[in-house]
Nucleic acid binder design. Structure first.
Ligand SMILES: [Mn+2]
Ligand SMILES: [Mn+2]
Ligand SMILES: [Mn+2]
Ligand SMILES: [Mn+2]
Lengths: 159, 159
DNA sequence: CAATATTGTTAGCCAAGGCTAAACTGTTTG
DNA sequence: CAAACAGTTTAGCCTTGGCTAACAATATTG
């Protein structure tokens, strides 16, 4: 479990900027990222479906495919998964709806996404860039950081 | 390519917080994230190998497995891929080295990672949290945002 | 220097998330 | 109302990134 370092007496090659974190902490970093990637896409689907329902009144597979730039087959397969996870309900060839759990996830995801987006804009990032960065960053921001981002944005607006 | 909205005369359901972005822009958001996810793991491996070489003098598969909390088989398979991509050179049962291209990628990734990490700390995020968040966020931060983060950190340090 | 422990590789499995092509359903329109 | 069109599903393929189990090579140590 510890690093193999059979020859610690070798000269330290070049000055290391920062030391490596302890193995357990380092491992936690990567594990958390892998974890986030497991739910990331699910969250984006559910969030998008929620937005389509709110703004358009319905969520069709074709709209999702267009907005995600993905084939309709891919969306169809994903919808089956969302159904199995009981996040959406759907009848064949019909529009989609969110379950209770789905609505909750959509709301949470949307809120987090907005905090990150507004934070980036408050930082001075151009809108188009902020939107792109937020889409990826949102899934990797802890609650702690999220709270700090929100505070920062509010402060910015008061000035 | 446009949204299907066969009944635009329906009453807009609830007040939408923010409008949906235009389809093309929205699609770009998701496409950029998918793109980042293709190179993310490669970058983390190369960066870690570079760090191990710098701080430990050698990069062994077992160290990578421990630090990433992943099986040795997974690492071994990945190393074959990195070899094919000509990012590392390796002889069976021996330590790893980075090619020219690999060193360049390691340097770039490390620099980006550090900017994000230092930014989060400057924002007031606790170190352990900042490290975890940075590991995921680094792959989703545009050059524009990166530059702004760097400036912010420098400003912070001057006060 | 032989036995043991550690490290690395290979084979074979699995799930996720893409794709295309083909078939099917539902809607619009001549 | 039949035909054409648009939307949806299914089947089958591929790559990535995990895993375990079995085996092979190297390193350590009694
Ligand atoms: Mn997202
Ligand atoms: Mn990500
Ligand atoms: Mn990194
Ligand atoms: Mn990373």
């Amino acid at each position: 479990m510890t690093d193999s370092n059979p020859n610690a007496s070798l000269p330290a090659p070049s000055i290391p900027g920062d030391a490596l974190p302890p193995v357990e902490q380092h491992a936690q970093q990567y594990a958390t990222v892998r974890n986030a990637h497991e739910t990331e896409l699910i969250e984006d689907y559910v969030e998008l479906i929620g937005d389509l329902l709110a703004h358009r009144g319905e969520a069709r597979a074709a709209d999702i495919a267009n907005r995600m730039a993905v084939s309709q087959a891919t969306v169809s397969k994903m919808i089956r998964r969302l159904n199995e996870l009981e996040l959406v309900t759907s009848k064949p060839y019909r529009s989609l709806f969110l379950t209770e759990a789905g609505q909750k996830m959509a709301e949470t995801s949307r809120a987090r996404h907005d905090i990150v987006l507004h934070f980036l804009r408050a930082l001075g990032v151009r809108d188009a860039t902020a939107r792109i960065d937020a889409e990826g960053m949102e899934h990797h921001v802890s609650d702690e950081t999220l709270a700090i981002m929100q505070r920062f944005t509010e402060q910015q607006q008061k000035s």
